[in-house]
Design a protein around this nucleic acid. Sequence first.
DNA 1: GACTCCAGGTAAATCGGTTTACTAATTTTG
DNA 2: CAAAATTAGTAAACCGATTTACCTGGAGTC
Lengths: 344, 344
Amino acid sequence: MRSSTRVTIKDIAEKAGVSKTTVSFAFNEPSKLSSATCERVLAMAAQLGYVPDPVARTLTTRRTGSVGILLCQPVEEALRNPYLGEILQGIGSSCAGQGLSLLLVPPFHGQVMEAARRAAVDALVAIGVGPDHQVVDLMQRRQIPLVTIDGCPGEGLSNVGVDDEAAAYELLEYVLGFGHSRLAIVELEPEVYSDGSGQTSAVARRRMAGFSRALGEAGLAVDAMRTFRVDCSLSGGMAAADKVLAGTGCTAILAMADILAMGIYVRCSEAGIRIPVDLSVAAFDGIQLSRILQPGLTTISQPGFEKGSEAGRVILSLLDGGPVRQVLMPTTLQVRASVGQVPD
Amino acid sequence: MRSSTRVTIKDIAEKAGVSKTTVSFAFNEPSKLSSATCERVLAMAAQLGYVPDPVARTLTTRRTGSVGILLCQPVEEALRNPYLGEILQGIGSSCAGQGLSLLLVPPFHGQVMEAARRAAVDALVAIGVGPDHQVVDLMQRRQIPLVTIDGCPGEGLSNVGVDDEAAAYELLEYVLGFGHSRLAIVELEPEVYSDGSGQTSAVARRRMAGFSRALGEAGLAVDAMRTFRVDCSLSGGMAAADKVLAGTGCTAILAMADILAMGIYVRCSEAGIRIPVDLSVAAFDGIQLSRILQPGLTTISQPGFEKGSEAGRVILSLLDGGPVRQVLMPTTLQVRASVGQVPD
DNA sequence: GACTCCAGGTAAATCGGTTTACTAATTTTG
DNA sequence: CAAAATTAGTAAACCGATTTACCTGGAGTC
């Protein structure tokens, strides 16, 4: 019965005996039409089961109704870190009022830049990219507002971040206060995607700088820290614990993300290692779920949700012609029970 | 220096002294052009900083390069349940190979249907909607493949789900085996969005049916169960615990999601209530993160990731002209330590 | 030398809407 | 009552690509 081909505005116009313009007006500017005509058109549209094509509409209005989140890893890997979830929630909460959807943009066949080129979005949020990243120039050419989260405060680029160096310093200073002198740092595998930016993330570098400063002030050499790289997930944390516990002699672990710490807890529990008696654990993020850990996890609490919602607000402002904005959000050292004295 | 207006294929054609067709060919069908022309065009495009407009391309190719995930709640609320994250990871893992992005589509100003109308996607995944939901008809009209997850196995609609009734029966039967006769069921607040489907979810109804059957076979009346409704999040679980612990006399809690159980654990720990000695807890989902709970959570393990990846595969097949498919995935009762004997 | 092929390229149609500029009929205004 | 303004509607341009159908000149064939 129903035509196998899509119902377009043209079909309605013909069947209702009016022009395409009139049909368009019936939906978008009913005031320009007599109510009789308007109703007739609308009735015909309903009868034919018409649904406006969002893509065609976008072409002229220049609004896709979605905000992109550029990921440097496949969705599968990126979402293993609940911290990303919190950021997404924040972005979503700001964008909801404007009817915007969130487009998760993973690398296109391994290419982050290609993904950024093809993304049909009104604005883009990129996590952890600096002002010299190619995507910055690309989005400028595409004339699409870009906001980075945890990028670098650079020229003419909006960013929402925290003082990573200071936070790392604060955390390590606290840990060193317990007498630890052999530390394990659990870092994230740098996402190596073929866009030339497969370097250690800017965040990690800033944190390492903070660590070094704290070490120096405590009179310790840099080799008091050993670095272990794993992917950012529960099982990554477990793998890290295995490595550290394999006779490294480290008495404290500092993990770059709470989810890693959670993995470490799991392994320690299985191995009968008591936190913080046998091993001290500290981390970064302060995600909601870290509340379920026993003993409580000492962590640098970053406002993930708020970072996201602030980035969302910056985006809305940018879309509205507002100026570039750099936002620095506070972190706090959440002291709980996972860090203790060096075991004998 | 650079023109303030977008660089289009037309600009390149003019500056390179060729037709638009040639420019298009240079990018998409280089074999149809002499290599000299092709290089000249490409060079001009690079010089002008040309980026093809994804929307315009989509209009003719009829491919957006994204798969929609229809949410019945704001992103902020939906992502509070890590189970959704696992499903997304699964969908993402299947779609990654095809270069597809994931569009999270929350209700548009409270309207789920309006959001579904406006979504520019190649295919849609809807979680928890039945074959009679309006979105099914809509997507048919839009000629966009639809797959439901945890919907109902219905006529001509692809679905990936599990046997919720049997799973619920199995779980409650196990719990009743410990002698419990006063049960608290922690349910999800039905998402009331103005599209007429603000009912208790189909999943919840099927599980309740399974519960009733188990109760009946154990010779208990239906009023042995008390139902509490909260939103699906850690704090929702905490709120549920507060309600249940406020003198209801319930000795076991069955939560509709692991994340709720996690909230319950937090509250119990704070209140000094021992699981499973003072209170038994069981749940549904079997998310990765439930591994960190102490004591281990007894739960109906559903393959969240696999559900997602299977849904993704069905979508790819559908996009390829494949047939409607209904997939039933297995669940297993994960017996761990959170359910015990009724306290005296 | 007439005929077919083919490589290389183009003009115009198309995708499905929105928007601009214009017309004709009616109403208001001075 | 003529001029101006408003109402209701339309044709055509436009958004920025892809795609179809066609053209042209030269090589290959018989």
